[in-house]
Amino acid sequence: MTIFVGPPSLAIRNKPITNELRSVLNTAAEAAGVDTIRITSGGQDALGHGTRRTGSTRHDLGRAADLQCVVGGQALTFTDEAAPPGILRFVMAAAAAGAIGIGAGVGYMGNRTIHVGFGTSVNDHNRLTWGVGGRSATAPQWLRDAAQDGWDGGGPMLPPASADEAIHPGRYAVMARDGLKLRGGPGTNFGSDRTLPAGTELKVVAVSNVDPAWVRVDLEDDGLLDGYVFAAFLAAVEAAPA
């Protein structure tokens, strides 16, 4: 179970986040192996309903949070050029679970804080990533790729596997509503020219040594490797009785 810490009582945005956002963050944390979500900036008064507020309306009434992903007591860090697997998995899973506003960048909020939330209002359903200056053009490429992968995969039919639910070689089915990208390597930086529809059965051959959140798969059960998929959107297929 993910531990939530914050927001600080002295922060301007010190109000709780919504249950909807908490659910998105919990899903993302479990998929990424993050044990603690440290919220540095949470909800705030809505326009016309209070004065304890600043900046964007995205944080109004707890619909967004600036946060850090903590593993083993240490917040994961990133650069504008690259992010560790835990951050990439977190962003991808958050997008797949419903987050539509995601921002990060060393010049934006430092090298460990990420904005995750929804639109500027309940009627804003635009998907957007951004970086320094709050501009889409400055969003780190890894952030764009990870978020887009989550959005392309669609919301999972079932909750993603937690870090404790390791995937082992065997038969699995794709559980991403709009399909799951088959990639040439274990990460969003590898290209994809095929999307596996929901319900597609495949054989997991091995877990990647580079990033265990990705697995090598055989689609035809012919002993040949076809590529890699993000393991959080797979569900084990029970063997038929003899």
Rank of each mutant, 00 (worst) to 15 (best):
T2F: 03
F4L: 06
V5K: 13
S9C: 07
L10Q: 13
L10E: 11
A11D: 10
A11G: 08
P16I: 04
P16S: 10
N19C: 07
V24Y: 00
N26G: 13
T27L: 12
T27N: 09
E30G: 07
A32E: 05
R38Q: 13
R38T: 07
I39C: 05
G42P: 02
H49K: 15
G50Y: 13
T54H: 14
S56Y: 07
H59D: 13
D60H: 09
A65D: 04
L67T: 01
Q68T: 10
Q68D: 08
C69T: 11
Q74G: 07
T77R: 10
A82L: 05
A83K: 00
A96S: 15
A96D: 06
A97I: 02
G98M: 07
I100G: 05
V106T: 14
M109A: 12
V122P: 03
R127I: 04
G131S: 11
V132A: 15
G133A: 06
G134M: 01
P140I: 03
W142H: 06
L143D: 02
R144W: 06
R144Q: 11
A146G: 04
A146L: 04
A147C: 08
G150S: 03
G153K: 00
G155M: 13
P156W: 02
M157D: 11
L158S: 12
P160T: 03
A166T: 12
H168G: 06
G170M: 12
Y172R: 07
A176H: 01
D178S: 15
G179W: 04
L180Q: 03
L182V: 04
P186W: 03
T188H: 09
G191H: 10
D193G: 15
P197C: 11
G199D: 08
E201Y: 03
V204Q: 01
V205Y: 01
N209I: 02
V217S: 01
D218Y: 09
D221A: 15
D222M: 12
L224A: 09
F230S: 03
A231K: 04
A235W: 09
A235V: 10
A239K: 14
A239G: 14
P241M: 12
